[in-house]
Design a protein around this nucleic acid. Structure first.
Lengths: 241, 241
DNA sequence: TTCGATTTGTTCGTATGTATT
DNA sequence: TAATACATACGAACAAATCGA
């Protein structure tokens, strides 16, 4: 690797990401105006615009004309538009209502450890939730969180959070999810999940393994999600939106 | 809708898309240089750059420093990176080898007509193919094409094409796929598909309904794709790449 | 191999428009 | 209304990659 020197706008991008990663600028906050950033980094406004534009494209910042540029907040709407892929057969998306089925501290199995990049046997939180869409059970989630990142998280806090799970990560722990990787396969419902989802055992379910990452590719969560396909599926648009 | 007048860069975008849609600039070709386009549209180079930049983001053009800007070609590599979502459990993608199972002219059922935006009963081509990955049967496709767009397509031409299906659409019919919509659910294998995929009947399969669009949101193809989940799944990254 | 022409990539600076407060 | 902030647009200069003479 020749490691060519960074261009000016790359330096600005890195500087901004740095300020976000260390928590100097928090979610929902307005970041300094473009002329101010330009002076601070010693570049022109156009260069700042290029850097900020790329970060907007990466779902890290949002611009609002006349108001400023803000660190993204994981509001419900944002979640729905950026990360939530479950839709009904007409392509409509709706945020689910979740209930906690179990909440426990345990140790990471090999697969979880690999995905979260922690040591096998390191402590993790395991949370199972049942999600309802249109008031019908639709999704069962089996979530694993590295305890190191969420040391004081308890069931009450988790269940009574006002917004989304990613919103909780952000507001309480300063962890902003900027990327997820989904691997979708099909599976047969076992007795327990069939009962939870109100299906016959042996029904076909979507099995979604999703890992979520914050800045600099740090994994913060991995979950397995079982989706009832009676009314819903995984919707994905490739190309321009 | 007030229909505010287009900005300069939007006019340039529209002008370029127009030239693509009418086939004046064909896939693989180099489009005029930025200074030339700037003179032609009566705007500055910076404005052309913004327009071209957005079209690059929409997978319609590709820039190559020192060489020029080109209309995207559906090469195998391009397909693999932009539209092909099937990967093995380590996230590795590989282009499949396809064989034609059936090829016939028929009439559009209601669902096909709706998705292709043609009249119910309009003539369509139906093609079934079996795809192999790592030399094992992995995917069964059931493809519907509006005959109006592909009037002279026969089985031989389809089967003996040198590249991908989208590449054939582009090189022979001037239709460039720029967007697809995938709706993924789970299903149980019927006897025929189980036999084709070398699975037990009743195995869980991914059922992917995919519709492909060219410029200006015109649908050119819809297919149902059954994916064996023994070794593969549907891989999707949300957020920055 | 070298050199020069061409093309995109980066950066600067400035002016004006539009939305918000 | 005025101030602030992002959005659009212009023009200019140099860097970096490519390609053919």
């Amino acid at each position: 690797m020749p490691a060519r020197p960074l261009t000016a706008y790359e330096r600005v991008k890195q500087g901004i990401t740095e300020a976000l990663g260390t928590g100097r600028w928090r979610h929902g906050q307005r970041i300094p105006s473009e002329p101010l950033l330009a002076r601070r980094f010693g570049v022109s406004v156009g260069t700042v615009r290029k850097a900020v534009g790329e970060l907007v494209g990466e779902n890290i910042l949002v611009r609002e004309q006349g108001r400023g540029t803000f660190v993204v907040s994981h509001t419900r709407d944002y979640m729905l538009n950026v990360f939530f892929r479950i839709a009904d057969r007409e392509g409509r998306k709706e945020l689910p209502q979740g209930t906690v089925l179990s909440f426990e501290r345990t140790k990471a199995d090999r697969e979880t450890a690999r995905l979260l990049r922690i040591a096998p046997g390191a402590r993790v939180l395991r949370v199972e939730t049942l999600l309802r869409l249109h008031d019908r059970p639709a999704v069962v989630d089996d979530i694993r969180l590295p305890l190191r990142l969420f040391p004081d998280l308890d069931e009450r806090t988790f269940a009574d959070r006002p917004g989304t799970i990613f919103g909780l990560f952000q507001s309480r722990y300063g962890l902003t999810v900027v990327r997820t990787e989904d691997f979708v396969t099909a599976a047969l419902a076992d007795d327990r999940r069939a009962a939870l989802l109100d299906l016959a055992p042996g029904a076909a379910l979507l099995h979604v393994r999703r890992t979520a990452f914050t800045y600099r590719d740090q994994p913060v969560e991995t979950r397995v999600r079982y989706v009832s396909c009676v009314r819903h599926g995984y919707l994905n648009v490739l190309g321009k939106p």
